[in-house]
Amino acid sequence: HNLTITQGKLFFHYNPKLCLSEIHKMEEVSGTKGRQERNDIALKTNGDQASCENELLKFSYIRTSFDKILLRWEPYWPPDFRDLLGFMLFYKEAPYQNVTEFDGQDACGSNSWTVVDIDPPLRSNDPKSQNHPGWLMRGLKPWTQYAIFVKTLVTFSDERRTYGAKSDIIYVQTDATNPSVPLDPISVSNSSSQIILKWKPPSDPNGNITHYLVFWERQAEDSELFELDYCLKGLKLPSRTWSPPFESEDSQKHNQSEYEDSAGECCSCPKTDSQILKELEESSFRKTFEDYLHNVVFVPRKTSSGTGAEDPRPSRKRRSLGDVGNVTVAVPTVAAFPNTSSTSVPTSPEEHRPFEKVVNKESLVISGLRHFTGYRIELQACNQDTPEERCSVAAYVSARTMPEAKADDIVGPVTHEIFENNVVHLMWQEPKEPNGLIVLYEVSYRRYGDEELHLCVSRKHFALERGCRLRGLSPGNYSVRIRATSLAGNGSWTEPTYFYVTDYLDVPSNIA
């Protein structure tokens, strides 16, 4: 807008934040220059609390790290170098490059900038070799853009010569660093050979998330399962459950009422301010606690030095998902009996873990797994792929695949051998790939016309006998059925096997 004052003059007093240069501009645009008398524009009460600059400061050096910015700028000295009290560095987070010096300023003089007072450097006698002032900004957020400017702080001049310097606002972004852990990993099994893994992005990506790394490792069953005799009275049979499938998407929606109208769909109840505040506090606490764990609990591995020492970490090797089922080394339970199943799973520490690289999504279907087997899954978020990966501390989750139908069934015939004193040795093959492992066998036998009897055969007993022995049988026709019990439950009964026990007292003698 054009402003013209045809008559009258300007009068400025007691404006401590208004620089004289701005008042002189007002004289020019209003056409009143030359009308004012000496005392109409006070030299001592206008701009006496402001830094009124008329020179431009330029930054000469900028260096960044993930949490620091090192700045240096060209030296500046007023005509009387004693008038320079120091520099004021202003900075704040700036997602967009549209910041002005006066953003967030209120009537009390406060604003949204963080201000650092910096002492002037030592003055050199040689004007050509003056030290460049600077400042190291610490405690910054990774991968965050900051708006920065600097200006001088000078003393009051009796001659009211307006001098000083100020830089333009520059924008500097800190470097990326390792992201925080992925949030809320959930693993479920939808079949006997697959596990579905879902997660949420890290709360602090500290860069642009480029991919996720998912490692999985087959877990050995508890050692007590191999040692305890679950045929003993009072000892509860062990059981394991597989990871249940995901709930429906509708039930997972946030901010939804727990109660549904019987007449149909209901609208979600909005969260109160107290609920939102509580969630923010919980989120802040979780982030602080995660940072504490990362800094205190997890110790970084030592990389190899120039002395030739090897990095103890196993090298990563990509495998196809079809090879995942046989990740671990199978060892027989008892070496003397080769027909026992290889369900003991000690994992070799030198073995390469299978892994998958996930790009542009937060889910993965891990296939080719062994049925009813526990897996430990390790999830890392990465925001750099080359020249070397920059990934987060791992988040861990466990899951067990679903049982395989008929995996616990005894394959092959049940054979028998009759000894003296009416002892019958029953023999059968253990299931080759049971659900988890076989903890015991149930032997059901009966003599024709009598009630059915049951015998429990422990895992250890089966390994020693290759089956079991029935003792003290009365003469007669017998039928026997056997079924295995694994961590997933009972298998199917075998087809009945028949044998006849004679009275050993009636056996004919070869003595003449």
Score class of each variant (00 low, 15 high):
321 L>P: 12
339 N>E: 11
251 S>H: 13
327 V>M: 10
369 L>S: 04
412 G>R: 13
466 R>D: 11
489 G>R: 04
450 D>H: 08
232 L>H: 07
216 W>N: 09
449 G>F: 10
313 R>H: 00
470 L>F: 06
248 S>A: 12
458 S>D: 04
490 N>V: 03
274 S>Y: 15
243 S>F: 12
418 I>M: 02
448 Y>R: 13
203 S>V: 13
509 S>Q: 14
482 I>S: 02
221 E>G: 09
249 E>T: 14
371 H>D: 15
353 R>S: 12
473 L>G: 02
449 G>T: 15
336 A>I: 10
213 L>H: 14
354 P>T: 11
310 E>Y: 15
470 L>D: 01
247 E>T: 09
326 N>L: 10
453 L>R: 03
280 L>V: 15
291 D>V: 03
305 S>Q: 14
243 S>N: 11
504 Y>C: 03
509 S>A: 08
323 D>R: 12
279 E>L: 04
464 L>R: 08
316 R>T: 08
232 L>A: 12
229 D>V: 03
467 G>Y: 10
391 C>F: 03
207 G>H: 02
473 L>H: 02
420 E>W: 15
390 R>W: 11
508 P>W: 08
463 A>D: 08
439 V>M: 05
464 L>D: 07
393 V>P: 15
339 N>Q: 11
268 S>D: 07
229 D>Y: 06
398 S>R: 11
307 T>V: 07
395 A>I: 11
229 D>L: 08
286 R>M: 10
235 L>F: 08
401 T>L: 07
453 L>P: 05
329 V>L: 07
506 D>R: 13
435 N>A: 05
303 T>V: 06
412 G>D: 09
469 R>V: 06
356 E>Q: 10
442 E>K: 04
219 Q>W: 07
379 L>C: 07
503 D>L: 04
299 V>Q: 14
389 E>S: 08
313 R>L: 12
361 K>Q: 12
488 A>P: 02
508 P>K: 04
405 A>D: 13
253 K>S: 04
372 F>W: 06
292 Y>C: 00
339 N>M: 04
407 A>K: 11
338 P>Y: 09
246 F>T: 10
355 F>S: 11
243 S>E: 05
405 A>E: 14
405 A>R: 13
334 V>S: 11
388 E>S: 04
439 V>D: 03
418 I>L: 08
299 V>L: 02
485 T>S: 05
220 A>P: 06
208 N>W: 15
285 F>T: 02
214 V>C: 01
399 A>Y: 03
320 S>T: 13
256 Q>Y: 07
296 V>S: 14
414 V>N: 02
271 K>A: 03
488 A>D: 15
432 K>C: 10
301 R>H: 12
229 D>Q: 11
414 V>H: 06
488 A>Y: 04
